[in-house]
Amino acid sequence: MVTTVPRHEYSTDDVPDTLNALGETANWILDEFADSPVLRPQALSTALTLAQQHCAVDPQAVKFETWEAWVTAMQTGSALFAAASAPEGTSVTCRIKERERTLPATGPESHLNAGAWVTSFYLAMICRDNDRLRLLAEVPVSLLRDSGAVFDEYIYSWVEALQSFWLGRQDVGEKLVAAVDGTAPEALRYADADLMSKILYPPLILLYRVIRRDPAQFNKALADALRWHKAYWTADEERSAGADGLIALGPLAMACLARDQGITVEVESEYLPKALLEYAWIGEIEY
C-alpha cells in the first residue's frame, strides 16, 4: 500500500525570475570559484538552492534543467572536498557542468565542514555517483574537524557510519549506534532540538532500516520522516517561504539507496521527486 505525503503549499509566482537570477549567479560562481577563496564558500549552497528552486515548479523533477541542476550541485560539493583532500601544493581536475575545472588543494576550510560533507554525500547518493561516493567516503574525519566549524559530536559518528557503510567496513553498526546516541537531547550542545528530531535524526533510522533489510519498517520510517520534515518547514511563515524545505534531502538520499538495494519504496511525495528517486536521467548527463 502506497503512502502519500503531500508537499506544503509554496508560492511559485516569482520562481521563474528567481531561477533566472539564481542561475546566472550560480554560473558566475562556478566559473570563478576555483581560484577565489571568497566564492568557494558560496558554491555548494548556491548550486543546491538552484536545484531545490527548480523543484518548486517541477515537483517530480522531470525536466532536463532540473536534473542538470542536481548533478551540478553534486559535482560542486564533491569537487570542493576533492580539493580539500588533495596533497598541499597540488591541484585536482573535476568535471562540473560539462567543463573540466582545476581546483588548487585547499586543506581544511571553514565551509568544508561535517555538515557540508553530509550534504555532498547525500547529493552523490541521489545522483548515484559511485566514484564520487567512494572519494567522499575516504575524506578524513580529521579534515572535517579541522574546519573550525562547531557541531555536536553525533555528526562525526554519522559521517563515519556513512563512510563505513559505503566502504563495507565492519564497524558501521557501532558508528551508527554512536550517532543515534549522540542525537539524544541530553547529548546536544549546539543543535536545535526541533531541527535534530525532525530533520537531522530521521536519515539515521532510515539507514538502519536499509541495513536490516526491513521494507515495511523502512517505508514507515520514510513516511514519518516526510511528515516531520513537513512539520518543521511549516512551523512558521519564514520557513515555509524558503526553498530549503521543498526537498527532504536526507530522506531522499536514503530512499534512493533503499531502492538501489532492492527495497520497494512505497511512499510518494513531492518531497521525494520521482525522477530523482528513480534515477530517470541515467545516460542523459555525462558526470
Rank of each mutant, 00 (worst) to 15 (best):
L143P: 01
F165V: 09
D31I: 02
A73G: 04
L30G: 04
A105T: 05
T76L: 02
H111P: 05
G115K: 12
L135W: 08
D31R: 13
I126R: 07
G89P: 01
E153H: 14
R145M: 02
L30Y: 08
A86T: 01
L123E: 08
L135E: 15
A137R: 00
W28S: 12
N113A: 14
A137Q: 00
V57S: 09
D131Q: 13
I96V: 12
C94L: 01
Q53G: 00
D131S: 12
G23C: 10
A34V: 06
T102N: 09
T102F: 13
L48Q: 10
P104A: 10
A105G: 07
E98M: 06
L162I: 01
L50W: 05
S36F: 08
A47M: 00
K97H: 06
H54R: 08
S110V: 13
Y122V: 07
S157F: 09
I96K: 06
A86N: 01
D31C: 03
T119H: 03
L44G: 07
Q60F: 02
E24S: 08
E109T: 10
T102M: 09
K63H: 14
V139I: 10
A116L: 11
C55L: 10
P37G: 00
P37F: 10
V62F: 08
M74P: 02
W70A: 08
T119V: 15
S110H: 15
T18A: 06
A79R: 00
A137M: 03
R128E: 13
P59D: 12
C94A: 04
V141I: 06
H111D: 13
D152T: 12
P104H: 11
M74F: 07
K63L: 15
V159C: 06
A51P: 07
A149D: 13
G107L: 03
G23N: 11
C55F: 02
I155H: 07
I29P: 04
R145E: 13
Q53N: 07
M125L: 15
E100W: 03
L22D: 05
F33R: 07
W28T: 15
T66G: 09
P59F: 05
P41Y: 11
S78E: 02
G77V: 02
L136G: 04
N130G: 12
L162C: 00
R95L: 12
W158Q: 08
T46C: 09
F121A: 09
M125E: 13
L136F: 02
I155T: 15
N20I: 09
S78K: 00
I126T: 11
A124H: 05
A61G: 13
S120T: 15
D58F: 06
W28D: 14
V71M: 04
P108Q: 04
A84H: 00
H111A: 07
F64Y: 10
A34R: 02
I155F: 06
S120H: 06
Y156G: 09
W70F: 14
A86S: 07
R128A: 15
N20P: 00
L44V: 04
G115I: 14
M74V: 01
D129M: 03
I96M: 05
D35R: 07
A161S: 11
D35I: 03
Y154C: 10
E32T: 10
P59R: 09
P108R: 06
T18K: 11
Y122Q: 15
S78T: 07
L133F: 05
A116F: 09
M74G: 14
P104C: 04
V71L: 12
E88M: 04
T25I: 06
N130S: 14
H54S: 03
S36A: 05
